[in-house]
Amino acid sequence: MSQTATGLRVLVVDDERPALDELSWLLARDARVGEVLTCDSATEALRLLREHEVDAVFLDVSMPGLTGLEMAQVLARFKIPPPVVFVTAHEQHAVEAFELRAVDYVLKPVREERLAEAVRRVVEGGGSAAAAAREQIPVERAGVTRFISRADISHVEAQGDYARLHTAAGSHLVRTPLSTLEAEWAGAGFVRIHRSLLVSVAHIDQVRMEGGRCTVVVAGRDLAVSRRHTRELRDLLTRRTS
């Protein structure tokens, strides 16, 4: 990170001057931000980044010439990519943004408390956009993209090339195979208990053994554990409680 002595150095990129000025002003009010650089085009921003290191880029999506999404693709090829926060009036690009490992996706009009949350994610991400992005999962319902916290997901059910994420508030279908989520979320405490089920260890309330069969109670539901995964699950839970 290239923090100044007084806080983060951030770059704001937006082709609309009122939006650029407002976002810069709000960021400057945050005690964690020490310096705010501004550009009104992605091309200019890339030139500036050759001369200055920054701790985060707050980036509009829809801009003439090089768009924000295209600029993020260029930044991803940097040796040390800066964390990217998209700030936009358009909800429909959220999935693309998180596929590019954005730290956050803030909708206009920007509220100061919402922007403060984006800055927190930059700070706590330690400069790793990918790590921060994985905390929030974009899901679509009725044509609207929403975000759910991975910590709220109790279990995941395979549905062909899709996966259904279960939370206390409902379920959401995502276009990601269960095997991919298993590999990406292993470090976050998700384990495979069946060829079609992935569970969050933090959400397991009970483990039951009856007649040689193992089941776990997750969010009030009994989920069967395959024989293949029973020993692995029991060993994992034993290590966590020892």
Rank of each mutant, 00 (worst) to 15 (best):
Q3H: 12
D235G: 13
P18Q: 05
A89E: 09
V216H: 03
T67N: 10
A19R: 02
A31D: 14
A102S: 11
H93L: 07
V123R: 08
V54E: 02
E22S: 12
A31P: 04
A116N: 00
P64G: 08
S242I: 13
I193K: 03
Y105I: 03
S41R: 04
T67G: 12
P82G: 08
R50D: 14
G65E: 08
R134L: 14
V199T: 04
A163I: 03
E35Q: 13
E91L: 07
A89W: 06
G220K: 06
E53T: 05
Y105M: 07
D104E: 13
E99G: 12
E232I: 03
R29D: 14
R101P: 00
V95C: 06
D60M: 05
G189Q: 08
L23Q: 02
T145F: 15
R32G: 01
F98E: 02
L59P: 04
P81D: 05
P18C: 03
L59W: 10
S41E: 06
H93R: 01
V156I: 15
H93F: 15
L236D: 09
R17M: 14
K79D: 14
V201T: 14
P64D: 11
R164P: 03
R221Y: 07
E182N: 09
A202D: 14
T88K: 01
R240S: 10
V54L: 03
E22D: 12
A28H: 06
A186W: 11
T238N: 10
D161P: 11
P109S: 10
P18D: 03
L165H: 08
R221N: 12
V10H: 08
L115Q: 06
Y162I: 00
H155T: 04
R141K: 13
Q73F: 01
G220C: 02
D161M: 09
V217F: 01
R213H: 15
E184F: 06
A169I: 00
A188G: 04
F86G: 01
A131S: 12
V57N: 09
H172R: 06
F190W: 09
D40F: 06
E51D: 14
L66C: 10
